[in-house]
Structure formats: C-alpha cells, structure tokens
Design a protein around this nucleic acid. Structure first.
Lengths: 339, 339
DNA sequence: TTAGTTCAGTTAAACGTTTAACCGTGGAAT
DNA sequence: ATTCCACGGTTAAACGTTTAACTGAACTAA
C-alpha cells in the first residue's frame, strides 16, 4: 500500500539513487529528470521511511525536550508556550520533538529520561531551571544540549535567553519616567539567574536616574515565584516601608499576588500604587486593572532554541553560542503617570 | 562506540538471532544462554536501534497525541495533565508520544499534523473536543484512533471518558443532601457531550429527590467554558431567580467565574450560596473558600488512553471499546449544609 | 534399529534508505 | 585524433534489526 522509493524509481524510470538525490535537492540531477521524479513522488504520494533513512544516516530524527513537572503544569502557560514554539519550528523540518517531564526534585537516583537512556534523540533542549544533578548526568551522554530560559552557572552551553537586564531596565525606567521614586522589587528566588539579572537591570536604571535603591524594598528570598509568594512579598515590603508607590514584580504570577495584597490592604491600583509585571501571560488582561508588563516572546524563544539546536547538529554553530531575545514593554492600566 | 546486536552476540558467543530472541523473551532459549546474553547486554549497555527494528517490523514506534492550541494552553492544566498521564504510561514501554497541537478552528484547508502526513505514528490519541473536519480527514488515514474526554457523536471509536452522568449525580446529590432545592446549573456549551451528560446526571438526581428543575436556572448557552462565561452565566441566572441557594458549575473555571460574580454581588459563599465545580484543578485550593468539586482523575485518563491504544495496536481490543473512568466528590468549603 | 519429535540455536533474507565509487557519453582542448 | 573533463546518472554496499526456515543433537517410541 505505502509506496517506497522503489515504486517511485520504477514509475519515473530511474534508479532509486536518483530518487534519493532528488529528495535531497542534490544538484547532480538534470531538471528534466528532477521533474519526472517529482511527479512520480507526488502521484504516489511518497514519503520516505524515517526508520530507513535514520538507520543509514545514524540519526534518530528526534529532539528531546525536557521540562520539570512544575513548569509543564504551571498555571500560567509559559513553558508550554516555549515548547509550542519549538514544535512549530520543528514542523517545517524533519525532526520530531519528544517532550518529557522530570520531577522538580529530580535526584541522583531517578532514572534519566528514557529517550536519553535508549538513545532515541539527537539532541536535548532543556527549558527552565532544572536540577544541577540532571545537567551533570546529561553531560555524560555526550548529546548536544541547548538551554532555553535558564543556564547553569558552571555550564558552557548554547543557550537562548531572555534579555533580562534589558527587561529590568525597561520596567524600571517605565516607572521612573512615570515619576516614581520608591520602587519596590519583588524577585522571588535571587538564585535564579533570570531574577538576579532583572535585579541588575533594576539597579542600573535606578542608578542612571540618580535614585538610591532602598534595600528594604527589595524582596528576593522566596524560592518559588507564584501568586502566593507575590502576596507575601508585597505584604512584607509594605510593612517595612509605607512610601512605596510602585512595584516591579519579576513575573506576572507574583504581580497578581501582589495586586491581591494591595486590594486587601486597601491600596488603589494604580491610583496609590503602580505595578508592573514580567512575562505577559493571558491572565494579565482579565485583571482589574489590566497589568502593565514586560512581554517575553515565548513562542519565539522556543523557535529560536530549535533553530539553535539545528545549527548545532549541523555543526554550523559554535558550541556555546548565546542568543539574547529582546523583550518589550506593554503598558496597560496598572501603572500611573505621576507627572 | 554504541554497541549493536553484533557486539552482544560476539561477546556472548552466540548468533545475533539468539540475542534478538532473548531481547523479546522468546522461550526458545535455554536459561543458561539467556543469562549469558543478558550479561553481555548489560556489560555493553546495549540498546537496540529503534530505526532498525522499526524498519523491519514496519512500525514507527510512535503514537501521535493531538490537542487544540486552546486546550494545550488552557490556564487550568487539564489536558496537559491528561497528556502527562499518557506520557507516564508510555514510559514503561517502547512507544514514544508525539505531541502536536492544531488550531481550535482547524479548517478544511489546514494541513493535517505532519506525523499523519508522513506516516510517523502507529496510532493517534485525540484529547478533548476537536473539529469534526479533522476527525473526518483523520479517518481516511486508516490509523487507529483513540479518543479521550470527547467522542464525536457519529463516531464509533475506542474512547476513554469521564463518567459524566455519575459526576452530575454526585455533585447534585451532594447539594441535595445538604438541603438545597434551588440548584442552578452552569453548563457552558450544551453541545459538548460531557456537558449534556452532566446535565442528565443533574436532572436525574433532582428527579429522584422529587425536585422539579426550574429551566430558568439552567444556563447552557455559552460556547466556551471559561471564567468569563462563568461570571456572566451566574449574573444572568441570579437576574432571573433570586432564590438560588446553590450552583453546580460544569467545570472549575466557570465555578471560579461564578464565585467572582457572587462576591461582586455581595453573596456570601457558602453562607448564602453554595457552589460546586467539576475537574478539580490546583486553583481550587487557593480560592477563598476552597472549592468543593468533582475530581476528574486526569493522569489516569491519559494513562488509560494509552493502554487502550496499546491493546488496539496489539489487536486485543474490540475496535470500539469504551472506558468510563469514575469521578470522585471532593468536599471543601464552598458548599454549606443547610440541615 | 529406524523414524519421528522436540529442543536450542543458526542462517540468511528482508526492511527502505543513503552515498561513495563507478560508468558512459559528449564536448573542449590540444 | 587523442586525451581529459564535466555531466548525469547507476551500482552496490551498508545501516541494525526481525523472523521464517532450517539444522543438528538428543531423545522417544515402536
């Protein structure tokens, strides 16, 4: 039923090698023959067998995509969007993406993803922060690895990152331009490189504006950046300093949590307190007021990671190329111009 | 570097056929030989090449998993959990899951998922409601199809479903047992089979309790079951009938929307109005009060779908087996006992 | 003793590609 | 006229499995 390269060759009256060469756009073939073959391919709706071609080319044709359970199931679809970007980009080509999750607390004894163990992938894309022990063990497999939105400090890997410093500056400058001076920072986990970079951006912007950042209004000690911790951080911040007029939260989930606190505490948003988030997730638009934020192009991040992986596989790319994806300020209603 | 079946054969001093037979637990092999071979396999950490074995067995070793973008990116991780269940279950075996999304408004002209086009899967799992036109076109490919949490009315396919009627009864009975009589129903889209079944359960429970359902407090005309529509439905319901003391919402997103309305309108939950949802998503616990709901075992649904697919592939299962997965009442704080 | 059967393992073909090496033809250069 | 080369295509080996058919040894039954 399913047609093979032989059927095509017979129908076009050429050898199977010719068909193969046509499939790969090899230029050894005259355009006459090429057309004949292409017609045959179309008529028989021929698709080459992946197994056969992988077998001889010693590729698997798959890319593994690793996420932690937490990230995959996150309420705000952030990493799922990144995955989707990778999938979209892969659709153009021959490679398939094998998605798997690992436990967030992946330990020394947990088995590696099976596509690593039985060598069913040509490379691995890792999205978001994952346990160090996994990275170490992955390295042993000698597979090309590309990181997205996270890079282990020690590692020298190709990576696609958000331009976090720029984002931090963008957000902070927006507030500064709106006349704010007491700008609180809600970071969540300072050990996360993205957060520390956004903090750098924040400080840099403050510095160029000649504002001295009050360490009391910087909160960076909550390990998990969710709504709950956004709420708690905001509460803590206001207990230390009542003069805060604006908050820069390092992701929208924490921003939403902080907004909840502000409402509970009776602060008007943005009349009394302005707030800006980071990520740009759907929920932002449902909020009252809609959240001003820094947009992270999630689909683009995933697509870029795939392209990077491809160029690594083709040997085109230097082994540790870093790509910084720019972010964009999205002004909505949660920040107020004091001028 | 990577060892092949030949290496194992040489090391164990047998033929490659013997190795293959051992790998497949064939009983033609003496336990002595078997042990020798297994040792060699382990020593060389041999894994058979998927390409090679797929090539000869004419399988792809992959299962496609199709979701709409909407479902994949849904704020409440419902279908992503189902996918994860499938992935978990697949991890035990040899099959890989290829996840892809299609546009929710998939039309006649949109291309089929590429794994269908180039025949890279042995079967397809479809989760959630997808456009009819996709189903029709999929059928032409002659691939085994398994549905999860949705079944096209016309179709006679193997399917894993939630026991929606039971769920409807469970939810409604809970409210009845708590002494409620004016129980509103928020369904979203009545054309969705799950919703119509839950409505059946609702009416059945009311009926056995001798309560006559007021058609005015049944809302089933919003196409998309999200928070927004939950809010709107509740508002509408209360504008028609002020005596409602309880709401059964067909998913937690709509329940959350309805809760928002209740709060905005000044109704105490559960003092004045009780509310029960359906699905059991993480967000439920964050709510104030935490939402009583009907738990859908999402991971289990996905796992069951995979098992069903496997048995279909092995020819074990009748072509149109239906599996009903039971649901469970989770009582939290959003419903009040009037007795 | 002989023929048949079972057991445990081997042989070899087949799966559908890719690609290095080869080949024949026609023209260009000498 | 001879040599060379470019062009356009073909041949055939190789990739790593699975499995039907085969083989040889040991045992059984008559």
């Amino acid at each position: 039923m399913k047609s093979t390269i032989k059927d095509v060759a017979k129908k076009a009256g050429v050898s199977i090698a010719t068909v193969s060469l046509v499939m790969h756009n090899h230029n050894r073939i005259s355009s006459d023959t090429r057309k004949k073959v292409q017609k045959a391919i179309k008529d028989l709706s021929y698709f080459p067998s992946r197994s056969a071609s992988n077998l001889v080319s010693k590729k698997t044709g798959n890319i593994g995509f690793i996420l932690t359970d937490d990230h995959f199931l996150r309420t705000e679809p952030f990493y799922t969007r990144i995955f989707l970007g990778t999938e979209f980009e892969a659709r153009e080509g021959e490679l398939y993406i094998l998605l798997t999750t690992i436990k967030s607390n992946f330990s020394e004894d947990d088995p590696l993803p099976r596509f690593i163990l039985n060598k069913s992938v040509d490379g691995v894309i890792i999205a978001g922060k994952i346990p160090k022990t996994l990275i170490n063990r992955l390295t042993l497999s000698n597979l090309p690895i590309v990181f997205v939105d996270y890079i282990d400090s020690s590692g020298n890997y190709p990576v696609v990152l958000i331009d976090n410093i720029q984002g931090g500056i963008l957000a902070t400058n927006h507030l500064i331009n709106y006349g704010h001076k007491n700008i609180a920072f809600i970071g969540g986990d300072i050990k996360h490189p993205s957060i520390s970079e956004r903090l750098i951006g924040y400080k840099k912007a403050l510095d160029t504006a000649g504002i001295n950042p009050d360490p009391n209004i910087i909160s960076t000690s909550y390990p998990y950046p969710d709504r709950q911790n956004g709420y708690t951080s905001a509460k803590e911040l206001f207990s230390k300093n009542k003069n805060i007029t604006a908050i820069f939260a390092c992701n929208d989930a924490m921003a939403i949590g902080a907004m909840h606190y502000l409402k509970d505490a009776g602060y008007g948003i943005p009349e009394e307190v302005s707030i800006i988030g980071f990520d740009d997730v759907e929920a932002d638009l449902m909020l009252e007021p809609p959240l001003t934020t820094v947009r992270v192009p999630k689909i683009e991040l995933g697509a870029e990671a795939f392209r990077l992986m491809k160029s690594v596989l083709e040997g085109k790319s230097l082994s540790a190329k870093k790509i910084l994806v720019p972010v964009e300020l999205i002004v909505r209603k949660s920040t107020r111009d004091l001028n």
